[in-house]
Simulated assay, not measured.
Amino acid sequence: MKTKFNLKTIILSALLMVAGSAAFAQCDKTATFTASTTNYLNDKGAVERTKDEESVVSFNKKEVNITTGGSHELTGTVKTYTCNWATPYKTGKTVITTLITDGGRDMNATITVEGKDGKVTLTFEAVEMPGKKIQLQADKFE
């Protein structure tokens, strides 16, 4: 009886390690987030306006690239990067702090990518834009 328990424990531990490794490996790769709608939120989190436009956000531990409307580009260097996904691209969170450049204007931003109930959202907040947030919901996240 004791041998079966130990064998089950070893197998379960190995499966958990493999699953954890897959989530961690996902954090080391470049992720790309595509959305078709941009929501502009006020300080209470209520949507003030919505804009139909394609946005593509690519990020890794070193850089962030955002393209909206097909031509508006923002780029940034990552200052801090935390990544914790229980289920890659479905359940978890990545938080990035970055100095992002928007047409010659620098902004200190926090980008939070969160997966919950199978939906992935990206929220952009900049120190230079107090009380405002920009939020995207992924059509595709890989």
Rank of each mutant, 00 (worst) to 15 (best):
V127M: 02
K133C: 03
G70P: 11
K132Y: 11
F24S: 07
T87M: 11
E54A: 05
A109P: 14
T94K: 05
F59E: 02
K93S: 01
T91Q: 06
I11H: 12
C27N: 12
F33P: 00
E73R: 10
T30P: 03
E54Y: 05
V57C: 08
A22M: 13
K62N: 14
S71K: 14
A86L: 06
I10H: 06
I66E: 01
F59M: 09
A22F: 13
T34A: 09
C83E: 11
T123L: 04
S13A: 09
L41H: 13
T80M: 02
I66V: 08
N84T: 13
E114Q: 03
D102Y: 06
G69T: 03
Q135M: 00
G45M: 02
V95H: 12
K79Y: 04
V57A: 07
N60H: 08
K44A: 05
L16F: 08
A14T: 15
T91W: 06
G103S: 04
P130G: 10
N39I: 03
F24I: 14
E114N: 00
S21V: 02
T30Y: 07
I11S: 08
S71T: 12
D28S: 12
G92I: 13
T91G: 01
E125P: 02
K44P: 01
L12M: 11
C27T: 13
T110I: 07
Y81M: 04
V57K: 08
K116T: 13
T3S: 06
V47G: 15
T123Y: 06
G118E: 06
T34H: 05
S13W: 04
A126G: 00
L74R: 02
D28G: 10
K79W: 06
N65P: 05
I134L: 05
R105E: 01
K62R: 12
I11Q: 12
L122V: 10
E53G: 07
N60G: 07
T101W: 07
K61L: 00
G69H: 03
T75S: 13
I96W: 01
F33T: 01
K51S: 08
D106L: 09
F124V: 09
I111K: 05
T112R: 14
T68N: 09
M129H: 10
N60A: 09
N60E: 14
R49Y: 15
F59C: 01
M17A: 00
E54V: 08
T94C: 03
